[in-house]
Design a protein around this nucleic acid. Structure first.
Length: 525
RNA sequence: GGGCGCGUAGCUCAAUUGGCAGAGCAACUGACUCUUAAUCAGUAGGUUGAAGGUUCGAUUCCUUCCGCGCUCACCA
């Protein structure tokens, strides 16, 4: 049983006693004159004398986070908007009934107090209460007051308690809101329009990932939760919306981890008549502005643990590193793997395979599949060799065609595409490219993906005939970008798990009785 | 799915080679009209995640299960 029944029942009894005092329980409104942050902002600078000479009457509400009773008087702290304000209750000032109510209050209760501001002997700004109004009862005990709630599972399962107890958690989510607001502001100012495209799609396209499946009863059809909005946004380019964006959830039926949650928030935007270089610039601006909105500057802290030691890195969001994927592999080629490859080596499948051999002989962990096209092997080399070194915001550009089914090829090198990704803090946070708009080329790419699928690659892209039809009506040249909002938020708030930037991350279902009940155990399996 | 670690009161944590399961906060009773980790006196709160095993005796050792965390794999 998750509830503490003793305390719950005691507090219900107190609720009855409060009702007996003539206070409506669970009343519907309270007219306040200030929020606690407003009072702190307006009166923190006022001296005791100033407050005394011009009496400031206030009505404020909040949740009681600390309470001290001393016979016929008492102090308590109210919390609202992440901030706290003390109030002082004196039996002489609130009367017998008012003081009886005060005696029945518990940590966590919501009250409204009416009175005037003063400073205590120790100088703390405090409300001298003349009337106290009961607003809502906390029937369950809050966590212990100075350690707070640290159990990570409880923090995620009961985020509401986490938010009450841990101001820094509240702060992260406020920053997340600032981030998203900033992204919208930057794109709106450049004439982008925000749209909403289907979350439920008959074909899960636009990214290579396993989808969630659901079913519509009336139409008796399976639908996929989208893995990306990409193909719909590009249909809008065909339709004449030249600058569109969407900030919304994507769903990928894959593992959970420090940077993966099955549903995550993605910004995607598309701009007609420009290429990957054009949208790269927009993306840099969007991210730099977001960093300013969240941190006030262009730099953010990123704490890395190396060999048990915490090292604080400073990520500079106004200073972008830039290199091609091939250059990155060469630059970060490990010494123990022998001679560095050269740019021209990537054109030879034989040499790329020998690079794989070199890397494996050096003992590096390296997952690859030689049955896949050579481009996929190069991308795997990049991940194995370079990704862990990409700490500062870095743009990696020119990706193999084999792993870029929706990107336009480089005119002079058809094995490579006009595509870039942005990395920071060893995470991929963005992916963009010149959009493939040749319907026949697109059909061939889909067909190549179908072969991968037949080979057993469940994540290979499906054929989307309607998308090809849309392209056949003519899509303007365009660049498009996706930005992982959760990961960007992690980087800007020094959060090292995606669960710390998602209010309600996915968790295993909670058991409704303690212990290993066998029937339930089977259900879980 | 593999490896490592953890699970003790509502919360945060103790408990010697395996020898009576404890503290602080929260709660309850009482005292206290400027406290702020309020203080003081007292009270209550536990199937030590679950099941089984070894043992005179298990929070401690073993097995299985459940849950959580970290990590590897998967996730362009």
């Amino acid at each position: 049983m998750a509830l503490d029944e003793n305390i719950y029942n005691l507090r219900r009894e107190k609720l009855r006693q409060i009702e007996a005092l003539g206070q409506p329980i669970y009343r519907s409104k309270y007219d306040f004159t200030h929020t606690i942050p407003q009072i702190l902002e307006q009166y923190s600078g006022k001296s005791a004398e100033e407050l005394e000479s011009s009496r400031v009457n206030v009505r404020v509400t909040g949740r009681i986070m600390a309470i001290r009773l001393m016979g016929k008087a008492g102090f308590a702290h109210l919390q609202q908007g992440g901030q706290r304000l003390q109030f002082y209750v004196k039996k002489d000032a609130v009367g017998d009934q008012g003081f009886e109510l005060y005696r029945l209050l518990d940590l966590g209760d919501h009250v409204g107090v009416s009175g005037y501001l003063f400073r205590t002997r120790t100088g703390e700004l405090t409300v001298h209460v003349e009337e106290i109004t009961f607003l809502s009862k906390d029937l369950l005990p809050l966590p212990e007051k100075w350690h707070g709630l640290t159990d990570v599972e409880l923090r995620y399962r009961q985020r509401y308690v986490d938010l009450v107890m841990n101001p820094e958690v509240r702060e992260v989510f406020l920053k997340r809101t600032k981030l998203v607001q900033s992204v919208r502001r930057t794109l709106d100012a450049q004439g982008f329009i925000e749209v909403e495209t289907p979350m439920m799609q008959p074909i899960a396209g636009g990214a290579v990932a396993r989808p969630f499946v659901t079913h519509h009863n009336t139409l008796d059809m399976d639908l996929y939760l989208r893995v990306a909005p990409e193909l719909y946004l590009k249909r809008l380019l065909v339709g004449g919306f030249d600058r569109v964006y969407e900030i919304n959830r994507n769903f990928r039926n894959e593992g959970l981890g420090w940077r993966w949650n099955p549903e995550f928030t993605m910004l995607e935007f598309y701009q007609a008549y420009t290429d990957y270089q054009g949208v790269m610039n927009v993306t840099q601006e969007v991210i730099t502005e977001a960093a300013k909105a969240v941190t006030g500057g262009t730099k953010s802290k990123w704490t890395v643990t190396e060999n048990g030691k915490e090292i604080v890195q400073e990520l500079d969001w106004a200073n972008w590193q830039k290199m091609t994927m091939r250059e990155a592999i060469i630059k970060f080629w490990p010494e123990k793997a022998g001679v560095k490859p050269q740019l021209k080596d990537f054109a030879s499948e034989v040499i790329v395979r020998s690079m794989v051999g070199q890397l494996q002989n050096s003992g590096a962990k390296f997952a690859y599949d030689l049955a896949k096209p050579v481009g996929a092997t190069i991308a795997a080399l990049f991940e194995a060799v370079a990704e862990e070194h990409l700490m500062q915001p870095t743009i990696i550009y020119e990706f193999p065609t084999a792993v870029s089914p929706l990107s336009k090829q480089k005119p002079d090198e058809p094995e490579w595409t006009e595509r870039f990704e942005i990395f920071a803090g060893q995470m991929e946070i963005s992916n963009g490219f010149s959009e493939l708009n040749d319907p026949e080329d697109q059909r061939r790419r889909f067909e190549a993906q179908l072969k991968e699928r037949e080979r057993g690659d469940e994540e290979a892209h499906q054929m989307d005939e309607d998308y090809i039809r849309a392209l056949s009506y003519g899509m303007p040249p365009a660049g498009g970008v996706g930005v992982g909002i959760d990961r960007l938020c992690m980087l800007l708030t020094d959060s090292h798990t995606i669960r710390d930037v998602i209010l309600f991350p996915l968790l295993r279902p909670e058991k409704n009785s303690s212990g290993g009940d066998e029937n339930e155990a089977q259900d879980v399996k």
